[in-house]
């Protein structure tokens, strides 16, 4: 069978099976407990009822996720070039990079709110903290993963440090960078949603998916919560899709991971 078709068909079949199983499970529950697992009709009704709210909230969360993610990319690439240029810098800074990832969001949330207030600034900072680490680790690793003979080649041609960085190390690091970017693209929307839940703004309709989930939860609107979860996943898929497209553009012509299979 056409492998491209299979790539769409298989997950689609799985989705159909999942929905059918879900419906069956819903039917098995006693009527008093069915609200725990809304059926497809209930879910669609929830999307109808809360669609506008969800869309606006998703928009806010998407912008926050992109903001934090974009900031993470810019800072991580800069930091990686710095880290790759000197072993001294690497040794000195590495433990603190890990600290960035270890910071418990729940704990710094109140501090962040005091510093920059609730809403976007806080949400973006938390998203940044969550998506930064995989990017900086992978990119640095990539910048350092250059074949010895290629470094020799550049040295022999008396290439400057800048030439070696931008004509050799940066292109060689691209596959690693995109590995980090993929991981961060999955983390960023979840991070933004969680951050919104903890440090989001509840005033003036400026809430993202986190605050929206909080409100639904307080009102016990279970189908709406499922709808919120699905919306969050869609955001994640969208970002991962964009990143995969960028990776394909940058790598498919030359990198082995995109080479045609030997069939």
């Amino acid at each position: 069978m056409n492998p491209r078709l299979l790539r769409w068909l298989l997950p689609a079949l799985l989705a159909v099976g999942f929905v059918v199983g879900w419906q069956v499970l819903h039917g098995q529950l006693s009527p008093s407990r069915r609200f725990l697992l809304p059926d497809l009709a209930g879910l669609i009704a929830a999307f109808r009822e809360h669609g506008a709210v969800l869309a606006r909230a998703a928009g806010y969360t998407a912008v926050a996720a992109l903001g934090g993610f974009g900031l993470a990319v810019v800072v991580a690439v800069g930091a990686s070039v710095l880290l790759a240029s000197s072993e001294l810098v690497r040794t000195a800074l590495y433990p603190y990079l890990m600290v960035l990832q270890m910071v418990p969001v729940i704990v710094i949330a109140p501090i962040l709110i005091l510093w920059v207030g609730p809403g976007w600034p806080s949400v973006i900072i938390v998203t940044f903290l969550i998506s930064f680490f995989p990017l900086v680790v992978n990119t640095t690793q990539g910048l350092l993963s250059v074949e010895r003979a290629q470094v020799d080649l550049f040295r022999m041609a008396r290439a400057s440090g800048l030439q070696a960085m931008f004509l050799l190390r940066v292109p060689a690091a691209l596959p690693y960078f995109f590995t980090g970017l993929r991981i961060s693209a999955i983390l960023a929307p979840i991070g933004a949603l969680t951050a919104d839940y903890i440090v989001g703004s509840t005033s003036g309709g400026r809430s993202g998916l986190g605050i929206t989930a909080l409100l639904f939860s307080a009102r016990n609107e279970i189908p709406a919560l499922y709808a919120t979860a699905i919306t969050g996943c869609l955001l994640g898929f969208a970002l991962v899709g964009v990143v995969s497209g960028l990776a394909w553009l940058a790598l498919h012509r030359w990198h082995d991971s995109y080479s045609p299979s030997d069939k």
Binding site: Q150, L153, A159, L167, L168, P171, A172, L174, W254, H255
Partner: peptide, 20 residues
């Protein structure tokens, strides 16, 4: 080893050292 730069086309690889 050939030590070519895989992200460059053959022509650009041949010109690499001249570019440097």
């Amino acid at each position: 080893d050939p030590t070519l730069l895989p992200w460059l086309k053959v022509a650009a690889n041949v010109e690499t050292l001249l570019r440097l």
